[in-house]
């Protein structure tokens, strides 16, 4: 069988995606999302997740979430051994619905943030963070 250059490339990409996806979107993440949203639909707008495109080390990755009007925001790391990262519940004196923290990522993966709005709706944002391996262990 002969493949054109383009077909070969497409096959390669498909195979890479197949190998990649099942481990990244695992059942534990689905469970965590379902527990938070109760299975509701999630809007794509209304929440910002700020995370570096490339983290120099997975031990300490600064992230921040911002969802005006949210009552709580859950953050999940889809590729960690356990996906839970944090849940921020905003009180009556919250000056904004924004929070920053530093998280651990076991490797390159998607970080997901879901906001629960005051009206009971949900919004989701996700960001891929590439975690690099160092040069010299030192």
């Amino acid at each position: 069988m002969n493949f054109s250059r383009r077909e070969t490339l497409a096959l390669g990409l498909g195979a890479a995606a197949m190998g990649f996806m099942p481990f990244r979107v695992n059942a534990a993440v689905d469970d965590a999302v379902a527990a938070f949203t109760g299975g509701s639909d999630m809007a794509d707008a209304g929440i910002d997740l700020t995370a570096p495109e490339i983290a120099e080390n997975g031990n300490t990755v600064p992230i921040s979430v911002d969802a005006p009007g949210a009552t709580s925001i859950i953050v999940l790391a889809a590729g960690n051994p356990t996906p839970g990262v944090a849940t921020f519940n905003f009180g009556e004196l919250a000056g904004s619905q924004m929070a920053s923290t530093r998280i651990r990522l076991a490797g390159t993966q998607d970080v997901v943030a879901i906001a629960k709005m005051a009206d009971g709706s949900f919004a989701k944002a996700s960001s891929t963070v590439k975690v690099t391996i160092g040069g010299c262990g030192g």
């Binding site: 120099e56 690099t132 391996i133 160092g134 040069g135 010299c136």
Partner: peptide, 8 residues
């Protein structure tokens, strides 16, 4: 320059 994924 890069040494693996790091900056020298």
């Amino acid at each position: 320059m890069m040494i693996r994924a790091d900056h020298l």
